[in-house]
Design a protein around this nucleic acid. Sequence first.
RNA 1: GGGCCUGUAGCUCAAUGGUUAGAGCAGGGCGCUCAUAACGCCUUGGUUGGGGGUUCGAGUCCCUCCGGGCCUACCA
Length: 572
Amino acid sequence: MARVLITSALPYINGIKHLGNLVGSQLPSDLYARYMRARGHEVMFICATDEHGTPAELAAAKAGKPVAEYCTEMHEVQAELARGFRLSFDHFGRSSSPENHTLTQHLAGRLKAAGLISEVSEKQVYSNADGRFLPDRYIEGTCPNCGYERARGDQCEECTKQLDPTDLINPRSAISGSTDLEVRETKHLFLRQKAMRDQLRDWIKSKADWPILTTSIALKWLDDGDGLQDRGITRDLDWGIAVKDGENDWPGMEGKVFYVWFDAPIEYIAATAEWAHAQGLGDEAWERWWRTDKGADDVRYVEFMGKDNVPFHTLSFPATLMGSAEPWKLVDYIKSFNYLNYDGGQFSTSQGRGVFMDQALSILPSDYWRWWLLSHAPESSDSEFTWENFQASVNKDLADVLGNLVSRVTKFCRSKFGEVVPEGGTFGPREEKLIADLTEKLRSYEQLMEAMEVRKSSAELRALWVLGNEYLQEAAPWSTFKIDPEAAAAQVRLALNLIRLYAVASQPFIPDAAQTMMTALGSDDWSWPGDVAAALATLPAGHAFTTPEVLFAKIADEQREDWQARFSGVRA
RNA sequence: GGGCCUGUAGCUCAAUGGUUAGAGCAGGGCGCUCAUAACGCCUUGGUUGGGGGUUCGAGUCCCUCCGGGCCUACCA
């Protein structure tokens, strides 16, 4: 048994996430966590809401609520949706937790002691009307290059020229529209990543098994242009983790907070501490996952994220942990994803385009979404959601191939033998062949799941289901029954046991349907089918079962058209 | 501008430089009747975006052109 630490990129707090966010980190990490648990490994699966930063403050202001209250509410909303999608986090924390405050301040203090923090005075735009410093992209104005009137302070989206906010003609606040702006001097802390460049490069180069998407992004940041730059890790905001040197004040940094990208990854660790404390356990309970001097030596740590998060997880966060000179557990494998597009364009939280998690659950059970999203995960390139593809895939894979198999086996048994596993008969060459085929496919499935090959795993699982239909067609117990009822009994006994095997194997993808199958069979035996022949003898003759309702109702054309129309515009 | 990824059947995707480029869906044919008109078997369908090159051999490596996407450090 191994110990596996799994983290999903933290969803930002400012609203309900769309399906593109879900498939990029939370869902595949859940798939992996469920599979690892199913194989008997000890798993710690961590996620949290990322609650700091300017967008959180603005979203709270828009909602007319204090930011702390807004975050508490949105955290609960996101937690409820996570439960709705059956995301099996051991803990779903909050980056605003006391644990994260303590740990972030502690690590900053360690970095300072190691000489890896520099103080830099710089000029930033301050908006008197908004009462805050404005990040570059929250300043709008006319592009001096192309004349586009809604250019942002960091870059003109029209001509793609990179800008400085002071370049803009007629600059104004993107928040309030106010032109009462001024440039003020402010002091910030920088993480001296430049000083750690060689150390980081050596570390990344040692990760030869990482996806190319992950390493190419990291190496580009390390070596592009002038190479890796120091990164500002503080901001002039009210909401966040106060800048401190461990438990001590940091002279000159009063009223400032750490930048969210400094404290967000630290929350992976802090959330594990939150978990320990919530369980009434001591610090050693979480330290054995994160401190190599306290038991984390044998932990395998895997991170899941969308490609936009890669620089922070390959550079800043490792630099933070390495630079602390404390024995923190570093990531062993980073699984990164491309983007899921929606019907010809991008999903967009800010524009309300696409299907959001709450809407998805309001029209169909989570298994439908889990199956489609995972079997179409954007691994090698961006992928696209269309309602036609969703309907076709779900109907064929879930309703026809798996659902109907469960239906035909249980109903046939009920009509000929009653709702008990039938007795008598023996297995012949056909059954031997089935067991051999199942074993081969199952072993392949295990390898793919181990390797986090999400789409390929789903295809292999589906192939496993297909074997059941092929067997039934060949064995044809409905014909056998007429001339040799005992032989038919053996065939049906095998088929019923096959359903249990499918429940176990499918559980990481479609947990609810798997539970329904298991419950219908009157079993609670989730042991992994290491030996397929033995697994197919789990339910003995005479064991009672119930015939389940339709496992997956098909999506009708009218439903699809209705949803297509309903989700064609932007969210209200 | 620079960098990275990507382009394979109508659609979604596979294929350590090595037989005749494969699956699923969709289309066509046959079979079955237990089942959610489901399932099984067979089958049509490709100048691997264009062009050039390296090689005994290229979807794969190199050059170039065309299309799609992402990143480019103060959104997170």
